[in-house]
């Protein structure tokens, strides 16, 4: 599998910064100073580096979970209860940035969105519109089918179809990332976002009916 991102970002494992406590050198993304063992504040590294993960789309949930929980244990408040308040505060801020990294990377679509941002091919954000006729015609058709669904079974059928499409779109997204084809990855990610919205709308419709 191609790994398009191999460069180490500034602030990554190979950069050195002084330890705030002993002034000795500390590795850029290490949680603790090698010299005095005191906790280090979170740096500017990206979410992948924060969890010690390779910058790629193809990561399974278990790998991300293990990386996250191992790092969260290191900064657990109990371990800093008898340390200086500043160390406890630094542990807390590391915990916050680990959470942000985990939330971003755990969900495949958010991970894809983040990767596309890092790669300089961000998907259209707030206030940005797209005019991809094929994709939008498909979205329009699915939304119309949902709007016209007049029984719980019909709504469920649209939802099941959307779920099925999401699985294949996610596979296509993974293949596009593996090939380093960012424009294609962006298109698949945009489609996934629309399919997600469709699923949400279907759930809302079912809930309305149930109420």
């Amino acid at each position: 599998m191609a790994t398009p991102f191999t460069d180490t970002a500034p602030g990554g494992a190979h950069s050195i910064r002084p330890c705030w406590s002993c002034r000795g050198p500390a590795a850029g993304d290490a949680a603790f100073c090698e010299t005095c063992g005191v906790i280090q504040p979170p740096g500017q590294e990206d979410h992948f580096a924060r969890l010690g993960l390779e910058r790629r789309f193809d990561l399974d949930a278990g790998t991300i979970d293990r990386a996250y929980f191992a790092r969260q244990r290191q900064v657990h408040p109990d371990r800093f209860a008898r340390r200086a308040p500043r160390e406890a505060a630094i542990a807390e801020s590391r915990s916050v940035s680990l959470n942000a990294a985990y939330q971003t990377l755990r969900d495949p679509l958010r991970r894809a969105t983040y990767l596309l941002e890092l790669a300089g091919h961000p998907i259209a954000g707030d206030g940005k519109t797209i005019a991809d006729p094929e994709l939008l015609a498909e979205v329009m058709e699915r939304r119309e089918a949902l709007a016209e669904a007049d029984s719980p079974e019909a709504v469920a059928a649209v939802a099941a179809d959307a779920r099925h499409e999401r699985v294949s779109a996610e596979a296509a997204l993974g293949a596009a990332f593996a090939a380093g084809d960012y424009p294609a990855a962006r298109r698949h990610a945009t489609r996934l976002r629309y399919l997600g919205r469709l699923a949400e709308e279907a759930r809302r419709r079912s809930a309305m009916r149930a109420a």
């Binding site: 940005k128 519109t129 797209i130 005019a131 939008l136 015609a137 629309y194």
Partner: peptide, 13 residues
């Protein structure tokens, strides 16, 4: 005219 706003999942014809 068919346009969309992916951020909010809107589609407009």
């Amino acid at each position: 005219g068919l346009v969309g706003a992916p951020a909010c999942g809107d589609v407009m014809k």
